[in-house]
C-alpha cells in the first residue's frame, strides 16, 4: 500500500538524497549476503555463552532457512494479490470476519484495557485523592491549620491586653484572691 496504489498523502514524494540512500543500499546488500559472508553465530557466540543453537549447522540449517524464505515470499505474493492485483479481497475478508476483524484491528484492545485499568485510575487517583485531598487538604491543611490556631489563640489572648491599667489591676487582685483561696484550700 505504501509503494503501489493511489497517492493518499499531501506532500510531494521524492527520491531520497544519497546521504540517506547510501547507507540504505549498504544495509540492503548486507541483509541479503551478510549471512553468507560473515559467520554470524561464531561472532555472537562470544556474547551469548549458550552454544546449543549455534551447533546444529549443516544441511538442517539450510532447510530451515529455505522454509522461512518460502514463507516470506508467500506473504509477499499474497499481499501482492490482495492489495495490487485484486483490491476487493481485503474488503470481503473484513466484512465476512466482522467482530473478529475489529478485535484484531484494535490489537485486542490491550491499549484501551491498560488505559482503563491502570493509567486512568492512577492519574485520576493521584489528582483527586493524593494531590487535592491528601496533600492540599489533609497535610497542608494541618500545617496551615496550626498557623490559624495560633492566630486564634493569639487573638483571644489579645483581649487581655487592653492597655487599661485599671483592668490590669482588677486582674491582679482577682488573681491574688484566687491564689490565696487555693493555698487555703489545699493546706
Amino acid at each position: 500500500m505504501t509503494f503501489w496504489g493511489d497517492y493518499r498523502g499531501h506532500g510531494h514524494p521524492h527520491e531520497s538524497s544519497w546521504t540517506m540512500l547510501g547507507p540504505l543500499v549498504v544495509l540492503a546488500v548486507l541483509s541479503i549476503v551478510g549471512g553468507f559472508v560473515f559467520n554470524v553465530p561464531e561472532i555472537l557466540s562470544g556474547m551469548f555463552p549458550i552454544k546449543e543453537a549455534t551447533e546444529n549447522g549443516g544441511p538442517g540449517e539450510m532447510v530451515l532457512t529455505g522454509i522461512s524464505v518460502a514463507f516470506g515470499l508467500a506473504g509477499i505474493a499474497l499481499s501482492w494479490l490482495m492489495y495490487v492485483v485484486n483490491k476487493d479481497i481485503p474488503e470481503k475478508i473484513t466484512s465476512s470476519l466482522g467482530g473478529v476483524y475489529t478485535l484484531v484491528y484494535n490489537k485486542y484492545f490491550v491499549d484501551e484495557a491498560y488505559d482503563a485499568a491502570i493509567v486512568r485510575p492512577l492519574v485520576q487517583g493521584s489528582e483527586s485523592v493524593l494531590w487535592k485531598t491528601v496533600d492540599a487538604g489533609l497535610i497542608d491543611g494541618t500545617v496551615n491549620g496550626m498557623g490559624t490556631q495560633s492566630q486564634g489563640v493569639g487573638s483571644l489572648l489579645r483581649l487581655l491586653q487592653s492597655g487599661n491599667i485599671r483592668s490590669y489591676a482588677t486582674w491582679v487582685v482577682i488573681g491574688a484572691v484566687v491564689v490565696i483561696v487555693v493555698m487555703g484550700v489545699t493546706r
Binding site: L122, V123, G125, S126, E127, L130, W131, D135
Partner: peptide, 10 residues
C-alpha cells in the same frame, strides 16, 4: 511513590 504520583498530575 507519593511524590512521583503527585508530580505526575501537576
Amino acid at each position: 511513590i507519593y511524590g512521583a504520583l503527585v508530580a505526575m498530575v501537576q
